[in-house]
Structure formats: C-alpha cells, structure tokens
Design a protein around this nucleic acid. Structure first.
Length: 154
DNA sequence: GCCAACGTTGGC
DNA sequence: GCCAACGTTGGC
C-alpha cells in the first residue's frame, strides 16, 4: 500500500523544475532525526508532494515518487558539503535517505493559503505554526484529496 | 526584518 | 539530567 509524504525544499536551492530536469535525485541533507525516521519508513512506490518553502508564495508545486530506499546520504561524509557531519561514524552512518523521481509538476502552485482553506493542521503537519519538519507523512485519504485539489485547483 | 517554535550545545 | 543560551527554519 503506497503511502503519501510531503517533502520540503527551498526552490532557490532545489525546485520541482530541477527534479524534472534531473529526472531523479538523492534527497540528501536532511539532518533532523524525526525527518530521517520518516525517510527510513518510506517504501518504493510511495509518493511525495513536493513543497516549495521560503518561496513567494510557498506551496505545493508537484509530485514525486520514491524509487530507491535505504541509501546512505553521501553528503554527511563530504567535507566540502554544507551537510557534512563530522560526528557521523563511517561504519555506522547516521543519515539515511531515499532517491526520488519526478512524476509531475502541477499546472499551478497550490499556495499555503489554499491548503489552509481546505485542510486542518491535523491533516497536514506543515500547516502547524512553527513546524520545521522537512519530511512529514500524510494519511492516505488526505493524500487522495490533496492530489485531487492539486490537479483540479479551479 | 520579525518572531514563534523548535533542536542542539555545553556548563554545571 | 537540567536548563539557559544560541542557532535555524520558515511564514508573515
């Protein structure tokens, strides 16, 4: 049973257009244990809403699919990476992640205001004020409704 | 630029 | 283990 997730990215760092261009990417740089645990729980075939944070306006831009799981995030061992973690033991890496592939970019971005009109903070954890988790789960029924909204916003 | 809401760090 | 200080995220 494929699950839904929501992943956040600042579009000036990595956008849905970048994912479309690359087709796939390793979702590196997550350095929060709760978010990492969600990454560990992902399965191939799960779908992730791609949210643009720190954008004007912020909102859901597209959809991706998990295509590989259980990867060791290579950036934790790269001293030149902003995500370098010198405390991560090489024989027991702290940070795992997944590879995602582009599925679609929605015809228009679904701004956070629209999400708040349709869903509660219990439905979508990103709507909770002060929430900083970059990876969050979405219940199947909510995900179905959200996908319908994203594809038919008008 | 402001600030709420965390997570992390480090002294004790 | 406690907790104050600090840093970060991210909407507004």
């Amino acid at each position: 049973m494929a699950a839904y997730w929501l992943i956040k990215s600042e579009p000036n760092v990595y956008s849905i257009a970048d994912l479309q261009r690359d087709r796939t990417t390793i979702w590196d740089g997550v350095r929060n244990y709760q978010a990492r645990n969600f990454l560990r729980a992902m399965a191939v075939g799960d779908r992730a809403f791609f949210y643009h944070s720190n954008a004007k306006p912020p909102g859901i831009a597209g959809l991706a699919q998990i295509c590989r799981t259980g990867l060791t995030d290579p950036s934790q061992f790269d001293p030149t990476s902003p995500y370098f973690d010198p405390k991560s033991p090489p024989n027991q890496p702290r940070w795992q992640t997944v590879e995602i592939e582009f599925l679609e970019q929605f015809g228009q971005l679904i701004p956070i205001d629209r999400l708040k009109q349709t869903f509660s903070a219990d439905d979508l954890l990103i709507l909770r004020t002060g929430n900083r988790l970059s990876v969050t789960p979405i219940e199947p029924a909510i995900g179905d409704r959200l996908l319908t909204l994203c594809r038919n916003p008008d």
